[in-house]
């Protein structure tokens, strides 16, 4: 396994794409964020805690609803699958017991698609939940990786790299970066390859976390500076 090969877009095998985060860009939702991995970008909006239909009400905690909309066409089975996984992951992260009988809705919209969209969706949802001030146990960061037919591990793969890969892995971690909150692996791979994927994603998710932190700090610091002038 080599980690020095150069990929079509000039990256190293263990390098993630340039990140971009914009928080609070939508006016109407309670919280919103755009998370971009270069040409892959997802927009997230969070509403809540708000009133819920009695049918969906849970008396001891908030209900989380996730809607995932693809870039083009109608949402299908894959989108339901993403919704299910994002919901399951955030049910363990959001402190739902603090807002019983309410609904927290997470809307995810693909805005540009170029591989690893599901990781971008996880990260966008985290940023939007933070923007909405929804109480959370931790923040969630996600990274994907693929293994090509040469056995090379490609971190944060593009669409083309995923198509030609023998296996594709998505991981999501909390800020402790131990174990994983979510994992999905498709294709054929050995246990050693799986462990290597887990390890490389675990290491590189710290870059996502530190970028999230920078984004929040930048947004808040400008506000504090303005307040201090008063």
């Amino acid at each position: 396994m080599t980690t020095t090969s150069i990929r079509p877009d000039g990256r190293q095998a263990d390098q993630i794409r340039p990140l971009e985060i914009v928080q609070g860009l939508l006016h109407r939702p309670d919280g919103s964020a755009q998370f971009a991995l270069d040409k892959t970008s997802t927009l997230a909006a969070v509403y809540g805690p708000m009133e819920i239909k009695i049918r969906d009400e849970k008396v001891d905690r908030a209900t989380i609803e996730v809607n995932y909309k693809p870039l083009t066409g109608q949402s299908g089975v894959r989108d339901r699958w993403v919704e299910f996984n994002v919901r399951r992951t955030f049910e363990g992260v959001v402190l739902t017991a603090l807002h019983p009988n309410t609904l927290i809705r997470i809307e995810l919209q693909e805005s540009r698609v170029h591989g690893s969209e599901i990781s971008a969706a996880f990260n966008a949802a985290t940023m939007a939940l933070m923007d909405a001030g929804v109480p959370m146990r931790t923040i969630v960061g996600s990274v994907s990786c693929a293994i090509d037919d040469q056995g090379t591990l490609l971190l944060d793969p593009t669409e083309h790299e995923i198509e030609t890969a023998t296996s594709f892995h998505i991981f999501a971690f909390d800020s402790e970066m131990q174990g994983a909150l979510f994992n999905d692996s498709i294709g054929s791979f050995t246990p050693e390859q799986y462990n290597a994927c887990h390890e490389i994603c675990r290491k590189s998710v710290s870059k996502i976390f530190s970028f999230m932190r920078t984004a929040v700090e930048k947004k808040l610091l400008t506000q504090v500076q303005q307040l201090q002038k008063e």
């Binding site: 959370m136 931790t138 909390d174 800020s175 932190r213 929040v216 610091l221």
Partner: peptide
């Protein structure tokens, strides 16, 4: 106001 400490969920 002292220099603000910024925290994220889980810190």
């Amino acid at each position: 106001m002292s220099p603000a400490t910024i925290v994220l969920p889980g810190d």
